[in-house]
Simulated assay, not measured.
Amino acid sequence: MARDRSESFAHLEGRLDDAERRYAEAVDTMRRQASLHVGSMTLQSRASVLATRGRLAELAPDTDQLSQARHPMSVDILGAALAAAGRHDGARALLADSVPLSHPLLFPLFSTFRAQAVIALDDRETADALYASLLAYRDSPPAGIANLAVVVPPAAHTLGELAVLLGRHERAAEHFTRAVAIAEHWHATRWAAQSRTALAAIRSAVIT
């Protein structure tokens, strides 16, 4: 894996073509070193950029690939991809027998993808449990930036989305406000704009 983390910062700053190139270089380095994590890094890096581009559905696995999709490091990503592709039954089946990774370094990253699936599926019971577990990370930097090469938006943004689903609009506004501040601190202008848009939608809904 690239030691300078340049792929992460390219992604943070919205230079997505550059990030994709750097992620590919990191994967090639891992492959040359015979790393056991090449497959997971490939999936995670593709998923993180596609999610930022709003194209996560492109990762939805074919039916004959689903038997291989239950690995703990892929189930949340592929469940979110299936949900994004409108294949809700497949997403439910994939996520039904799995639980979020509990490691504190991994949980915020993979919970971001699980939350996308849960929201698409309108699964409020799971959303409530996920919200409670993710709340401890509400002030954390963009998920993955501290220790991993792959990054996704701050947990505060994900908490805001879950709060919207749960009808907790005041809390959602608080989370989106915090997400804007965190994203701006890390020069993640695309994610800051995303959280600002979500915040404006909440405020508009409350006014109307």
Rank of each mutant, 00 (worst) to 15 (best):
residue 99 V to C: 06
residue 204 S to K: 15
residue 108 P to G: 08
residue 76 D to G: 10
residue 205 A to K: 15
residue 37 H to Y: 13
residue 104 P to T: 08
residue 159 L to S: 01
residue 66 L to C: 06
residue 57 A to R: 11
residue 107 F to A: 15
residue 130 L to M: 07
residue 104 P to E: 06
residue 41 M to R: 14
residue 41 M to P: 03
residue 43 L to E: 03
residue 15 R to W: 00
residue 94 L to D: 02
residue 142 P to Q: 04
residue 199 L to N: 07
residue 203 R to V: 10
residue 102 S to T: 14
residue 141 P to L: 07
residue 196 R to D: 05
residue 66 L to A: 04
residue 138 R to Q: 12
residue 48 S to C: 06
residue 82 L to N: 06
residue 169 H to N: 15
residue 159 L to F: 00
residue 35 S to N: 08
residue 81 A to M: 06
residue 21 R to V: 04
residue 97 D to H: 13
residue 37 H to L: 12
residue 154 P to V: 03
residue 57 A to T: 04
residue 109 L to T: 11
residue 3 R to N: 10
residue 140 S to H: 11
residue 106 L to Y: 09
residue 201 A to W: 11
residue 95 L to Y: 01
residue 187 H to C: 11
residue 152 V to H: 05
residue 183 A to C: 11
residue 80 A to Y: 03
residue 143 A to I: 01
residue 145 I to G: 06
residue 176 F to V: 02
residue 94 L to C: 07
residue 77 I to F: 03
residue 92 R to Q: 08
residue 116 Q to Y: 07
residue 81 A to K: 09
residue 35 S to M: 07
residue 81 A to P: 02
residue 123 D to P: 08
residue 77 I to N: 10
residue 39 G to N: 13
residue 19 A to W: 00
residue 176 F to T: 02
residue 134 L to D: 05
residue 87 R to V: 02
residue 56 L to P: 00
residue 77 I to S: 09
